[in-house]
Design a binder for these strands. Sequence first.
DNA 1: ACCTGAACACCGTTCAAGT
DNA 2: ACCTGAACACCGTTCAAGT
Lengths: 209, 209
Amino acid sequence: MDPEQIVTVARRILEEEGLDALSMRRVAKEVGATPMALYHHVRDKDELLMLTLSGMARTVPRPELPEDPRERLLAVAVHMYRTLRRMPWVVQVLGLGDLADKGALWVMEEVIDSAMACGLDADDAARAYRTIWHCVYGELVFRAAAERRAQDPDRTRNFPDALLTEADAEELPHLTALSGRWMEVMESYDLEAQLRKVIDGLLGGPAAQ
Amino acid sequence: MDPEQIVTVARRILEEEGLDALSMRRVAKEVGATPMALYHHVRDKDELLMLTLSGMARTVPRPELPEDPRERLLAVAVHMYRTLRRMPWVVQVLGLGDLADKGALWVMEEVIDSAMACGLDADDAARAYRTIWHCVYGELVFRAAAERRAQDPDRTRNFPDALLTEADAEELPHLTALSGRWMEVMESYDLEAQLRKVIDGLLGGPAAQ
DNA sequence: ACCTGAACACCGTTCAAGT
DNA sequence: ACCTGAACACCGTTCAAGT
Protein backbone atom coordinates (compact mmCIF):
# COMPACT_ATOMS: atom_id res chain seq x y z
CA MET A 1 0.00 0.00 0.00
CA ASP A 2 1.76 3.13 -1.26
CA PRO A 3 0.62 6.75 -1.19
CA GLU A 4 -0.26 6.49 -4.87
CA GLN A 5 -2.80 3.76 -4.23
CA ILE A 6 -4.39 5.79 -1.45
CA VAL A 7 -4.74 8.78 -3.74
CA THR A 8 -6.14 6.64 -6.57
CA VAL A 9 -8.83 5.22 -4.32
CA ALA A 10 -9.62 8.65 -2.90
CA ARG A 11 -9.99 10.08 -6.41
CA ARG A 12 -12.34 7.29 -7.41
CA ILE A 13 -14.57 7.94 -4.43
CA LEU A 14 -14.56 11.68 -5.15
CA GLU A 15 -15.36 11.07 -8.81
CA GLU A 16 -18.16 8.64 -8.14
CA GLU A 17 -19.74 10.16 -5.05
CA GLY A 18 -18.28 13.58 -4.40
CA LEU A 19 -16.57 15.26 -1.50
CA ASP A 20 -19.16 14.34 1.11
CA ALA A 21 -18.58 10.64 0.55
CA LEU A 22 -14.83 10.85 1.12
CA SER A 23 -13.70 9.80 4.55
CA MET A 24 -10.44 8.45 5.84
CA ARG A 25 -12.21 5.35 7.07
CA ARG A 26 -13.85 4.75 3.71
CA VAL A 27 -10.54 5.12 1.86
CA ALA A 28 -8.88 2.79 4.34
CA LYS A 29 -11.54 0.15 3.88
CA GLU A 30 -11.33 0.22 0.09
CA VAL A 31 -7.56 0.14 0.24
CA GLY A 32 -7.73 -2.87 2.53
CA ALA A 33 -6.17 -1.39 5.64
CA THR A 34 -7.10 0.12 8.96
CA PRO A 35 -7.91 3.83 9.07
CA MET A 36 -4.70 4.47 10.96
CA ALA A 37 -2.50 2.99 8.27
CA LEU A 38 -3.27 6.02 6.09
CA TYR A 39 -1.71 8.36 8.59
CA HIS A 40 1.69 6.88 7.85
CA HIS A 41 1.45 8.21 4.31
CA VAL A 42 -0.51 11.44 4.61
CA ARG A 43 -0.54 13.95 7.41
CA ASP A 44 -4.31 14.28 7.57
CA LYS A 45 -7.44 14.47 5.45
CA ASP A 46 -6.55 17.90 4.14
CA GLU A 47 -3.27 16.67 2.79
CA LEU A 48 -4.95 13.70 1.15
CA LEU A 49 -7.36 16.09 -0.55
CA MET A 50 -4.46 18.16 -1.79
CA LEU A 51 -2.79 15.08 -3.20
CA THR A 52 -5.93 14.06 -5.10
CA LEU A 53 -5.74 17.39 -6.91
CA SER A 54 -2.11 17.40 -7.89
CA GLY A 55 -1.57 15.63 -11.16
CA MET A 56 -5.15 16.00 -12.33
CA ALA A 57 -4.18 18.65 -14.89
CA ARG A 58 -1.98 16.17 -16.74
CA THR A 59 -5.03 14.03 -17.50
CA VAL A 60 -6.47 16.82 -19.65
CA PRO A 61 -4.88 17.33 -23.08
CA ARG A 62 -3.77 20.89 -23.71
CA PRO A 63 -5.98 22.38 -26.39
CA GLU A 64 -5.10 24.11 -29.62
CA LEU A 65 -5.53 27.82 -29.05
CA PRO A 66 -6.23 30.64 -31.50
CA GLU A 67 -3.39 33.02 -32.24
CA ASP A 68 -5.23 36.26 -31.73
CA PRO A 69 -4.53 37.09 -28.09
CA ARG A 70 -8.04 38.22 -27.23
CA GLU A 71 -9.54 35.06 -28.71
CA ARG A 72 -6.85 33.01 -26.99
CA LEU A 73 -7.73 34.57 -23.63
CA LEU A 74 -11.38 33.68 -24.15
CA ALA A 75 -10.56 30.18 -25.37
CA VAL A 76 -8.40 29.41 -22.31
CA ALA A 77 -11.11 30.60 -19.95
CA VAL A 78 -13.75 28.55 -21.72
CA HIS A 79 -11.45 25.53 -21.74
CA MET A 80 -10.91 25.88 -18.00
CA TYR A 81 -14.68 26.00 -17.53
CA ARG A 82 -15.50 23.03 -19.75
CA THR A 83 -12.77 20.94 -18.17
CA LEU A 84 -13.86 21.58 -14.59
CA ARG A 85 -17.50 21.14 -15.53
CA ARG A 86 -16.73 17.47 -16.08
CA MET A 87 -14.88 17.24 -12.75
CA PRO A 88 -17.29 18.60 -10.16
CA TRP A 89 -15.31 17.13 -7.28
CA VAL A 90 -12.26 19.16 -8.29
CA VAL A 91 -14.34 22.31 -7.97
CA GLN A 92 -15.50 21.21 -4.53
CA VAL A 93 -11.94 20.58 -3.37
CA LEU A 94 -10.63 23.81 -4.90
CA GLY A 95 -13.16 25.76 -2.84
CA LEU A 96 -11.58 24.36 0.31
CA GLY A 97 -8.43 26.33 -0.06
CA ASP A 98 -5.29 27.09 -1.85
CA LEU A 99 -4.54 23.66 -3.17
CA ALA A 100 -3.10 23.75 -6.64
CA ASP A 101 -1.63 21.68 -9.39
CA LYS A 102 1.55 22.51 -11.19
CA GLY A 103 0.20 21.07 -14.42
CA ALA A 104 -2.44 23.79 -14.47
CA LEU A 105 0.00 26.69 -14.35
CA TRP A 106 0.10 26.94 -18.13
CA VAL A 107 -3.48 28.24 -17.94
CA MET A 108 -2.38 31.18 -15.82
CA GLU A 109 0.62 31.77 -18.02
CA GLU A 110 -1.50 31.73 -21.16
CA VAL A 111 -4.06 34.14 -19.72
CA ILE A 112 -1.39 36.53 -18.50
CA ASP A 113 0.51 36.29 -21.78
CA SER A 114 -2.63 36.98 -23.83
CA ALA A 115 -3.64 39.89 -21.64
CA MET A 116 -0.17 41.40 -21.94
CA ALA A 117 -0.24 40.94 -25.70
CA CYS A 118 -3.43 43.02 -25.57
CA GLY A 119 -1.63 45.83 -23.82
CA LEU A 120 -1.94 45.18 -20.08
CA ASP A 121 1.10 45.30 -17.85
CA ALA A 122 2.08 42.18 -15.91
CA ASP A 123 0.30 43.20 -12.72
CA ASP A 124 -2.94 44.09 -14.44
CA ALA A 125 -2.76 40.86 -16.40
CA ALA A 126 -2.40 38.85 -13.18
CA ARG A 127 -5.38 40.65 -11.71
CA ALA A 128 -7.37 40.05 -14.89
CA TYR A 129 -6.62 36.35 -14.50
CA ARG A 130 -8.10 36.43 -11.04
CA THR A 131 -11.29 38.16 -12.15
CA ILE A 132 -11.76 35.72 -15.03
CA TRP A 133 -11.20 32.80 -12.71
CA HIS A 134 -13.91 34.15 -10.39
CA CYS A 135 -16.35 34.28 -13.28
CA VAL A 136 -15.56 30.68 -14.20
CA TYR A 137 -15.55 29.42 -10.62
CA GLY A 138 -18.82 31.16 -9.70
CA GLU A 139 -20.53 29.67 -12.70
CA LEU A 140 -19.25 26.20 -11.79
CA VAL A 141 -20.40 26.44 -8.17
CA PHE A 142 -23.88 27.74 -8.86
CA ARG A 143 -24.51 25.51 -11.84
CA ALA A 144 -23.60 22.52 -9.68
CA ALA A 145 -25.95 23.78 -6.97
CA ALA A 146 -28.75 24.22 -9.51
CA GLU A 147 -28.26 20.65 -10.71
CA ARG A 148 -28.33 19.27 -7.19
CA ARG A 149 -31.54 21.19 -6.55
CA ALA A 150 -33.13 19.95 -9.75
CA GLN A 151 -32.49 16.39 -8.67
CA ASP A 152 -34.17 16.91 -5.31
CA PRO A 153 -37.67 17.94 -6.43
CA ASP A 154 -38.72 18.11 -2.82
CA ARG A 155 -36.75 21.27 -2.29
CA THR A 156 -37.07 23.08 -5.60
CA ARG A 157 -37.50 26.72 -4.82
CA ASN A 158 -37.07 28.49 -8.16
CA PHE A 159 -35.29 31.35 -6.58
CA PRO A 160 -36.21 34.19 -6.75
CA ASP A 161 -39.70 33.43 -8.01
CA ALA A 162 -40.69 31.53 -4.90
CA LEU A 163 -39.93 34.56 -2.73
CA LEU A 164 -42.07 37.02 -4.66
CA THR A 165 -45.61 37.87 -3.67
CA GLU A 166 -48.06 40.23 -5.37
CA ALA A 167 -47.29 42.87 -2.81
CA ASP A 168 -43.76 43.14 -4.22
CA ALA A 169 -44.79 44.33 -7.67
CA GLU A 170 -44.22 47.93 -6.74
CA GLU A 171 -40.93 47.51 -4.87
CA LEU A 172 -39.48 44.96 -7.27
CA PRO A 173 -40.93 45.69 -10.69
CA HIS A 174 -38.19 44.11 -12.81
CA LEU A 175 -38.07 40.92 -10.78
CA THR A 176 -41.84 40.75 -10.93
CA ALA A 177 -41.72 41.16 -14.70
CA LEU A 178 -39.11 38.43 -14.95
CA SER A 179 -41.04 36.20 -12.60
CA GLY A 180 -41.79 32.81 -14.07
CA ARG A 181 -39.20 33.36 -16.77
CA TRP A 182 -36.26 33.35 -14.37
CA MET A 183 -35.24 29.73 -14.92
CA GLU A 184 -35.58 30.20 -18.66
CA VAL A 185 -33.41 33.33 -18.66
CA MET A 186 -30.79 31.61 -16.54
CA GLU A 187 -30.70 28.60 -18.83
CA SER A 188 -29.87 30.96 -21.68
CA TYR A 189 -26.88 32.24 -19.70
CA ASP A 190 -23.93 31.64 -21.95
CA LEU A 191 -20.63 31.82 -20.10
CA GLU A 192 -18.64 32.30 -23.29
CA ALA A 193 -20.71 35.32 -24.29
CA GLN A 194 -20.41 36.78 -20.79
CA LEU A 195 -16.68 36.15 -20.63
CA ARG A 196 -16.27 37.92 -23.96
CA LYS A 197 -17.80 41.03 -22.44
CA VAL A 198 -15.84 40.72 -19.21
CA ILE A 199 -12.62 40.40 -21.21
CA ASP A 200 -13.55 43.46 -23.27
CA GLY A 201 -13.94 45.36 -20.02
CA LEU A 202 -10.69 44.12 -18.54
CA LEU A 203 -8.76 44.96 -21.68
CA GLY A 204 -10.18 48.47 -21.79
CA GLY A 205 -12.77 48.22 -24.53
CA PRO A 206 -13.87 45.91 -27.35
CA ALA A 207 -11.35 44.74 -29.92
CA ALA A 208 -10.01 47.56 -32.04
CA GLN A 209 -10.59 47.64 -35.84
CA MET B 1 -38.10 26.23 22.78
CA ASP B 2 -39.40 27.68 19.54
CA PRO B 3 -37.93 27.56 16.03
CA GLU B 4 -36.72 31.13 16.46
CA GLN B 5 -34.56 30.20 19.42
CA ILE B 6 -33.05 27.30 17.50
CA VAL B 7 -32.16 29.58 14.60
CA THR B 8 -30.72 32.21 16.93
CA VAL B 9 -28.43 29.69 18.57
CA ALA B 10 -27.43 28.25 15.19
CA ARG B 11 -26.57 31.70 13.90
CA ARG B 12 -24.43 32.44 16.93
CA ILE B 13 -22.45 29.24 16.43
CA LEU B 14 -22.01 30.00 12.72
CA GLU B 15 -20.91 33.55 13.51
CA GLU B 16 -18.46 32.57 16.19
CA GLU B 17 -17.05 29.35 14.78
CA GLY B 18 -18.21 28.90 11.20
CA LEU B 19 -20.03 26.21 9.30
CA ASP B 20 -17.81 23.34 10.42
CA ALA B 21 -18.72 23.91 14.05
CA LEU B 22 -22.45 23.73 13.46
CA SER B 23 -24.02 20.43 14.33
CA MET B 24 -27.51 19.47 15.30
CA ARG B 25 -26.21 18.02 18.55
CA ARG B 26 -24.32 21.19 19.38
CA VAL B 27 -27.36 23.37 18.71
CA ALA B 28 -29.49 21.04 20.82
CA LYS B 29 -27.08 21.19 23.72
CA GLU B 30 -26.90 24.99 23.71
CA VAL B 31 -30.67 25.23 23.40
CA GLY B 32 -31.02 22.90 26.37
CA ALA B 33 -32.72 19.98 24.69
CA THR B 34 -31.97 16.60 23.20
CA PRO B 35 -30.81 16.46 19.57
CA MET B 36 -34.11 14.91 18.55
CA ALA B 37 -36.18 17.78 19.90
CA LEU B 38 -34.89 19.91 17.01
CA TYR B 39 -36.44 17.62 14.47
CA HIS B 40 -39.88 18.68 15.61
CA HIS B 41 -39.16 22.20 14.40
CA VAL B 42 -36.91 21.74 11.37
CA ARG B 43 -36.91 18.96 8.81
CA ASP B 44 -33.15 18.44 8.84
CA LYS B 45 -29.83 20.23 9.02
CA ASP B 46 -30.23 21.67 5.53
CA GLU B 47 -33.48 23.33 6.47
CA LEU B 48 -31.94 24.75 9.62
CA LEU B 49 -29.14 26.23 7.53
CA MET B 50 -31.69 27.79 5.20
CA LEU B 51 -33.50 29.31 8.14
CA THR B 52 -30.30 30.88 9.49
CA LEU B 53 -29.97 32.74 6.21
CA SER B 54 -33.47 34.06 5.86
CA GLY B 55 -33.86 37.36 7.63
CA MET B 56 -30.15 38.18 7.64
CA ALA B 57 -30.59 40.85 4.95
CA ARG B 58 -32.84 42.87 7.26
CA THR B 59 -29.95 43.30 9.70
CA VAL B 60 -28.03 45.33 7.12
CA PRO B 61 -29.20 48.90 6.51
CA ARG B 62 -29.88 49.67 2.88
CA PRO B 63 -27.27 52.14 1.68
CA GLU B 64 -27.63 55.47 -0.07
CA LEU B 65 -26.87 54.89 -3.73
CA PRO B 66 -25.66 57.28 -6.41
CA GLU B 67 -28.16 58.33 -9.04
CA ASP B 68 -26.05 57.69 -12.11
CA PRO B 69 -27.03 54.14 -13.07
CA ARG B 70 -23.51 52.92 -13.85
CA GLU B 71 -22.21 54.23 -10.52
CA ARG B 72 -25.26 52.75 -8.79
CA LEU B 73 -24.55 49.35 -10.32
CA LEU B 74 -20.99 49.48 -9.07
CA ALA B 75 -22.03 50.73 -5.64
CA VAL B 76 -24.56 47.91 -5.16
CA ALA B 77 -22.00 45.30 -6.13
CA VAL B 78 -19.41 46.76 -3.78
CA HIS B 79 -22.00 46.98 -1.02
CA MET B 80 -22.86 43.32 -1.49
CA TYR B 81 -19.18 42.47 -1.24
CA ARG B 82 -18.44 44.59 1.84
CA THR B 83 -21.51 43.25 3.60
CA LEU B 84 -20.74 39.59 3.02
CA ARG B 85 -17.08 40.16 3.84
CA ARG B 86 -18.19 40.74 7.44
CA MET B 87 -20.36 37.61 7.39
CA PRO B 88 -18.10 34.80 6.23
CA TRP B 89 -20.49 32.11 7.42
CA VAL B 90 -23.20 33.46 5.14
CA VAL B 91 -20.86 32.96 2.19
CA GLN B 92 -20.18 29.40 3.33
CA VAL B 93 -23.87 28.61 3.59
CA LEU B 94 -24.67 30.30 0.27
CA GLY B 95 -22.19 28.02 -1.46
CA LEU B 96 -24.20 25.04 -0.29
CA GLY B 97 -27.07 25.75 -2.58
CA ASP B 98 -29.91 27.91 -3.61
CA LEU B 99 -30.88 29.22 -0.25
CA ALA B 100 -31.95 32.81 -0.42
CA ASP B 101 -33.35 35.67 1.58
CA LYS B 102 -36.24 37.79 0.47
CA GLY B 103 -34.72 40.85 2.10
CA ALA B 104 -31.83 40.66 -0.34
CA LEU B 105 -33.94 40.83 -3.47
CA TRP B 106 -33.64 44.60 -3.64
CA VAL B 107 -29.99 44.06 -4.59
CA MET B 108 -30.98 42.08 -7.68
CA GLU B 109 -33.69 44.59 -8.51
CA GLU B 110 -31.26 47.48 -8.19
CA VAL B 111 -28.62 45.82 -10.37
CA ILE B 112 -31.15 44.92 -13.05
CA ASP B 113 -32.71 48.37 -12.94
CA SER B 114 -29.34 50.09 -13.25
CA ALA B 115 -28.27 47.84 -16.09
CA MET B 116 -31.52 48.52 -17.94
CA ALA B 117 -31.12 52.25 -17.40
CA CYS B 118 -27.76 51.81 -19.15
CA GLY B 119 -29.45 50.27 -22.15
CA LEU B 120 -29.56 46.52 -21.55
CA ASP B 121 -32.80 44.61 -22.03
CA ALA B 122 -34.28 42.75 -19.07
CA ASP B 123 -32.74 39.39 -19.96
CA ASP B 124 -29.26 40.80 -20.50
CA ALA B 125 -29.57 42.73 -17.25
CA ALA B 126 -30.45 39.54 -15.36
CA ARG B 127 -27.47 37.79 -16.89
CA ALA B 128 -25.25 40.75 -16.02
CA TYR B 129 -26.41 40.40 -12.43
CA ARG B 130 -25.28 36.81 -12.43
CA THR B 131 -21.84 37.61 -13.80
CA ILE B 132 -21.33 40.39 -11.27
CA TRP B 133 -22.43 38.10 -8.46
CA HIS B 134 -19.84 35.54 -9.57
CA CYS B 135 -17.10 38.18 -9.41
CA VAL B 136 -18.18 39.12 -5.89
CA TYR B 137 -18.67 35.55 -4.71
CA GLY B 138 -15.36 34.31 -6.13
CA GLU B 139 -13.51 37.10 -4.41
CA LEU B 140 -15.22 36.30 -1.10
CA VAL B 141 -14.41 32.59 -1.31
CA PHE B 142 -10.76 32.94 -2.24
CA ARG B 143 -10.09 35.80 0.10
CA ALA B 144 -11.50 33.72 2.95
CA ALA B 145 -9.32 30.80 1.87
CA ALA B 146 -6.25 33.05 1.77
CA GLU B 147 -6.99 34.25 5.29
CA ARG B 148 -7.40 30.73 6.60
CA ARG B 149 -4.11 29.77 5.01
CA ALA B 150 -2.33 32.80 6.45
CA GLN B 151 -3.43 31.74 9.92
CA ASP B 152 -2.04 28.23 9.51
CA PRO B 153 1.62 29.00 8.86
CA ASP B 154 2.34 25.30 8.72
CA ARG B 155 0.64 25.01 5.38
CA THR B 156 1.47 28.28 3.67
CA ARG B 157 2.20 27.51 0.08
CA ASN B 158 2.29 30.90 -1.64
CA PHE B 159 0.68 29.54 -4.72
CA PRO B 160 1.89 29.66 -7.44
CA ASP B 161 5.39 30.54 -6.32
CA ALA B 162 5.87 27.31 -4.41
CA LEU B 163 5.21 25.27 -7.53
CA LEU B 164 7.78 27.01 -9.72
CA THR B 165 11.28 25.69 -10.23
CA GLU B 166 14.10 27.16 -12.29
CA ALA B 167 13.34 24.70 -15.05
CA ASP B 168 10.02 26.47 -15.64
CA ALA B 169 11.51 29.81 -16.64
CA GLU B 170 11.22 28.98 -20.31
CA GLU B 171 7.74 27.45 -20.28
CA LEU B 172 6.28 29.94 -17.83
CA PRO B 173 8.13 33.21 -18.33
CA HIS B 174 5.48 35.59 -16.99
CA LEU B 175 4.81 33.53 -13.87
CA THR B 176 8.55 33.31 -13.33
CA ALA B 177 8.85 37.08 -13.68
CA LEU B 178 6.00 37.56 -11.21
CA SER B 179 7.46 35.00 -8.85
CA GLY B 180 7.99 36.36 -5.37
CA ARG B 181 5.77 39.31 -6.12
CA TRP B 182 2.60 37.19 -6.46
CA MET B 183 1.28 37.82 -2.95
CA GLU B 184 2.04 41.51 -3.30
CA VAL B 185 0.22 41.76 -6.63
CA MET B 186 -2.77 39.91 -5.22
CA GLU B 187 -2.94 42.15 -2.20
CA SER B 188 -3.22 45.09 -4.56
CA TYR B 189 -6.25 43.44 -6.18
CA ASP B 190 -9.02 45.99 -5.83
CA LEU B 191 -12.43 44.48 -6.37
CA GLU B 192 -14.02 47.86 -6.98
CA ALA B 193 -11.59 48.68 -9.77
CA GLN B 194 -12.08 45.24 -11.32
CA LEU B 195 -15.85 45.47 -11.08
CA ARG B 196 -15.75 48.85 -12.79
CA LYS B 197 -14.06 47.21 -15.78
CA VAL B 198 -16.37 44.19 -15.74
CA ILE B 199 -19.38 46.51 -15.70
CA ASP B 200 -17.93 48.50 -18.60
CA GLY B 201 -17.68 45.24 -20.51
CA LEU B 202 -21.17 44.08 -19.65
CA LEU B 203 -22.68 47.42 -20.61
CA GLY B 204 -20.90 47.42 -23.95
CA GLY B 205 -18.07 49.87 -23.38
CA PRO B 206 -16.93 52.56 -20.93
CA ALA B 207 -19.31 55.34 -19.93
CA ALA B 208 -20.16 57.63 -22.82
CA GLN B 209 -19.38 61.39 -22.68
C1' DA C 1 9.31 1.76 9.25
C1' DC C 2 4.87 0.26 8.93
C1' DC C 3 0.72 -1.38 10.71
C1' DT C 4 -3.13 -2.72 14.22
C1' DG C 5 -6.65 -2.31 18.11
C1' DA C 6 -8.81 0.14 21.17
C1' DA C 7 -10.33 4.32 22.44
C1' DC C 8 -11.95 9.37 22.51
C1' DA C 9 -14.91 12.63 21.29
C1' DC C 10 -17.76 13.44 18.03
C1' DC C 11 -21.58 13.22 13.72
C1' DG C 12 -27.08 13.06 11.36
C1' DT C 13 -31.02 10.63 11.77
C1' DT C 14 -34.63 6.80 12.84
C1' DC C 15 -37.64 4.62 15.76
C1' DA C 16 -40.34 3.39 19.74
C1' DA C 17 -41.78 5.10 23.84
C1' DG C 18 -43.33 8.49 26.98
C1' DT C 19 -46.39 12.87 28.57
C1' DA D 1 -48.10 18.00 19.90
C1' DC D 2 -43.82 17.84 21.84
C1' DC D 3 -40.04 15.62 23.86
C1' DT D 4 -36.73 11.72 25.50
C1' DG D 5 -33.60 7.49 25.34
C1' DA D 6 -31.52 4.25 23.03
C1' DA D 7 -29.73 2.88 18.98
C1' DC D 8 -27.62 2.74 14.13
C1' DA D 9 -24.23 3.70 11.20
C1' DC D 10 -21.00 6.65 10.77
C1' DC D 11 -16.79 10.56 11.50
C1' DG D 12 -11.14 12.32 12.26
C1' DT D 13 -7.53 11.49 15.07
C1' DT D 14 -4.49 10.00 19.22
C1' DC D 15 -2.01 6.76 21.62
C1' DA D 16 0.16 2.50 23.02
C1' DA D 17 1.35 -1.71 21.34
C1' DG D 18 2.92 -4.97 18.04
C1' DT D 19 6.24 -6.78 13.95
